[in-house]
Design a protein around this nucleic acid. Structure first.
Length: 785
DNA sequence: TGGCCGTACTG
DNA sequence: CAGTACG
DNA sequence: GCCA
């Protein structure tokens, strides 16, 4: 036991230091030390699944040894060192922090491999490589932690992606031969996917062969693309044609899924019912599909908690809603991708009339200019090239989801409305007061209207920076992600491509380091720094865990340390809170975006029910819906009533409302409910009655007496960055802004610590709050930061 | 070098 | 209390 | 990460 702990500790220490190593510049903040310092006591109940997962004894130790003695025994050719690219300043990579880590001094220099090597060709023309028969160069000792071992190789350029097979019983792709189209692994994402498939037992055919069992096509390809690429008239019956999503899902569900599901089909391809045989039912006997294991752990209602019935088809729900392409959550927020002009009215149910529409003060009624260009298909055009040359595939989106965010796929309203941002109008800043600080730095001062969709010239850069932010979040770094997000906000507002570092540093919130990264991204279409993480198992598991409602970085890290790797592991062995269990059972549901129309429908039910309880109640949908998003991550309903001045006047109504909605079947579970009399929130889950299959949605109610409506709207409309920005601005002005109101004469101690409550300035009127702060009014759809 | 929003629920 | 969540 |  103790020994295992030690090994794990050693491993994680090593991991940490390596990670920092590969970081461009030195340090990562200290919070991550928790990884290296304290290991949780080993409970016996803890997850040592003998079969799968890690056996620390086998892994950590050898790894450490190997990395300590730099040269890799098996690595055949020393290959030339990768030259540091000029773009990245590599200063000191020695880590001071990771004290006592055996590796920290050794692995000080990790080559940022440019990924170019085409592993396949190098070995000559053998078309198949069997992963199950590791080549001499395969470093299989390190089985579980590829990134670690590859990083540990130090400067040595990896010649061939080391494939670390998963334990045999998990090799769901055993005996399968995958042929990818395009048949290369140049793009980092694709390489990671291919490696992953191989780790699960697949054989990768790098040349077309009819012995292939599956053709895995790039998601943009159509059936015709494939046949023409292969120069055949049709795909042989015994070969299964699926898109790249398929293997990922199989891996996540640990099963060979039915390849005929529509989310795996290619455009223009009608499966000939034939392959249902080969394709297999979704749940092969060998590996229980998640649904089943999920069903096992059924409701264990707890006093005060609704009985919670795990619904049938949760995890498999990829087809409805937005096809999530990858099992893993993506970093960036996808809401606000598009806006529609009519949002304002739609957002309000009940007697309230307007609040957005009338606008004297700020930027007038924001009428979206119809916008023109439709670019959605650009990606498709690239495909030809890809197929032909198949050599520079770098345009494939780095992240999986991108364009799926707005489900409807509704092409128009491609958002962006007015490409107003450079336009003079945004510049109007009526200076009420002269601030003694630079208010340019506050993103709440300027409208963000250009979204991150493909229309944005910096979309690619933004997407990659978002991944970086997400990556650092996973690393338990609190502040870097904020830095990145601010930079991203700035970038979103540029209406032309920012391509050089020189140009970039001049922009607010973009410093030298991000500027360098921007330049690298624009020039190479990727960030090497990020590539390193792409195939990191632990990182991928972390992403998985962080996608669970109720699980944050702390819990996710702990579970990872304990050796859990899948949601099923967690359900079976980890100790979970009720919310977390629910979060796992509905993992896919919660990951699925909610079409705007469904939000409207749900809100209408709420509003109608509420009015049945009290005519005066108004239900206003806030959140990304109010910002005009075409799809939302959850539903935010603000409940208010004219004439009220305290939450306590509304709480009883909320209680009734919830109980009626629950009775009517719309609300299906509570997650977090107010404790006190005057509390103002209720968080839970709902489904659209009649929806088949039902998809659980996150819904939040927020109570606001009329006297606080403005502040509540401001808060509940967000977005979060906008809120933080405007709140920070308030605090710089000696005020305080929260969901109840704007307060002045707040005395603050060191570090802006609040010393007193302050005196209420305004709470009822959203616009007045802007005005008091000297912030130009911005309608909700311009609060996208 | 230290700050980076303010609040509320869970266990 | 730390952790997670909400915008 | 960025900034004062």
């Amino acid at each position: 036991m103790a020994r295992e702990d030690m090994d794990k500790a050693a491993y994680f220490k090593a991991l940490s230091s390596l990670d920092e190593d590969s970081d461009d510049e030195s340090t990562i903040s200290s919070s991550r030390d928790k990884l290296t310092t304290s290991l949780p006591p080993h409970h016996k109940s803890s997850p040592h699944k003998h079969n799968e997962t890690v056996d620390p004894k086998q892994n950590a130790t050898p790894q450490l040894e190997r990395s300590l003695s730099a040269p890799t025994p098996n690595s055949p050719s020393p290959v030339h060192l990768i030259k540091e690219t000029p773009l990245v300043s590599i200063k000191n990579r020695l880590q001071q922090g990771r004290t006592g880590t055996p590796l920290s001094n050794e692995v000080s220099f990790v080559a940022e491999t440019p990924t170019s090597p085409k592993p396949i060709q190098s070995g000559g023309a053998r078309p198949l490589r069997k992963t199950s028969a590791p080549t001499p160069t395969t470093l299989n000792r390190g089985a579980q932690f590829p990134s670690f071992s590859s990083a540990a190789l130090g400067k040595r350029k990896r010649k061939e992606p080391s494939i670390k097979l998963v334990p045999e019983q998990h090799r769901i792709f055993k005996d399968l031969v995958f042929f990818y189209v395009p048949p290369d692994d140049i793009a980092p994402v694709r390489r990671a996917r291919i490696v992953k498939a191989r780790e699960y037992g697949a054989t990768w055919a790098t040349e077309w062969t009819e012995t292939a069992t599956h053709i895995i096509a790039d998601k943009h390809l159509s059936y015709a693309d494939i046949t023409s690429f292969l120069k055949i008239s049709s795909i042989p019956d015994h070969i299964i044609l699926v898109n790249e999503l398929y293997p990922l899902d199989c891996i996540q569900f640990k099963a060979i899924l039915n390849p005929n599901q529509k989310q795996y089909l290619l455009k223009g391809y009608e499966p000939t019912t034939k392959d249902s045989a080969a394709g297999t039912p979704a749940q092969p006997p060998s590996s229980p599909a998640p649904q089943q294991s999920l069903e096992l752990k059924t409701a264990r209602p707890k006093p005060g908690r609704w009985s919670y019935v795990p619904p049938k088809a949760t995890p498999d729900r990829s087809q409805n809603g937005g096809d999530r392409q990858s099992a893993l959550p993506e970093a960036g927020e996808m809401d606000d991708v598009t806006r529609s002009p009519e949002h304002a009215e739609a957002a309000v149910y009940g007697t309230i009339g307007d609040e957005d529409t009338t606008e004297p003060l700020g930027a007038g009624p924001v009428v979206e200019s119809p916008q023109s260009v439709e670019e959605v298909s650009r990606a498709d055009d690239d495909l030809d090239e890809i197929i032909k040359g198949a050599l520079k595939v770098q345009h494939l989106p780095l992240d999986d989801d991108e364009d799926d965010a707005s489900p409807t796929g509704s092409p128009h309203h491609g958002g962006d409305s007015s490409d107003d941002n450079g336009s003079p109008k945004t510049k109007r800043k009526h200076i009420t007061r002269k601030p003694n600080f630079n208010q340019e730095g506050f993103s709440c001062m300027k409208g963000g209207t250009i979204d991150a969709s493909s229309l944005n010239p910096n979309a690619r850069t933004i997407s990659i920076l978002q991944e970086m932010a997400a990556y650092y979040t996973r690393m338990d770094d609190t502040w870097r992600p904020i830095g990145y997000r601010k930079a991203i906000t700035t970038l979103k507002k540029q209406n032309k491509l920012v391509s050089t570092a020189e140009e970039a540093v001049k922009l607010p919130a973009i410093g030298q380091r991000i500027a360098d990264k921007i330049e690298e991204i624009v020039h190479t279409d990727k960030l090497r720094r990020l590539d390193n993480t792409k195939s990191d198992h632990n990182d991928i598991i972390l992403q998985l865990f962080l996608g669970i409602y109720g699980v944050g970085i702390s819990q996710a890290t702990t579970w990872l340390q304990q050796g859990y790797t899948t949601l099923e592991d967690l359900l079976a062995h980890a100790s979970l809170t009720d919310n977390q269990r629910l979060g796992i059972d509905h993992y896919q549901d919660f990951q699925t975006r909610i079409p705007r129309a469904e939000v409207s429908a749900l809100a209408k039910i709420v509003a109608d029910t509420a009015r049945g309880i009290d005519r005066g109640i108004e239900a206003i949908v806030a959140g990304s819906y109010r910002r005009g998003a075409e799809s939302c991550g959850d539903i935010d309903v603000l409940l208010t009533k004219p004439g009220t001045s305290a939450c306590s006047e509304l709480t009883p109504l909320l209680y009734k409302l919830v109980s009626q909605l629950r009775a009517s079947g719309m609300l299906v579970a509570p997650l977090s409910v107010g404790r006190t009399e005057s509390s103002s929130k209720w968080h839970g889950c709902c489904v659209l009655p009649g929806q088949e299959p039902p998809i659980w949605r996150r819904i939040d109610f927020h109570l606001a007496p009329a006297s606080e409506l403005g502040a509540a709207l401001l808060y509940f409309t967000g977005n979060d960055i906008f809120n933080r920005s405007i709140r920070l601005l308030a605090s710089k002005r000696g005020m305080r802004l929260n969901q109840r109101g704007l307060y002045k004469s707040v005395m603050r101690g060191p570090g802006r610590a609040k010393l007193n409550e302050g005196e209420l300035v305004e709470g009822a009127d959203e616009k007045k709050i802007f005005a008091e702060l000297g912030v130009p009014w911005r309608p909700p759809e311009e609060r996208v930061c």
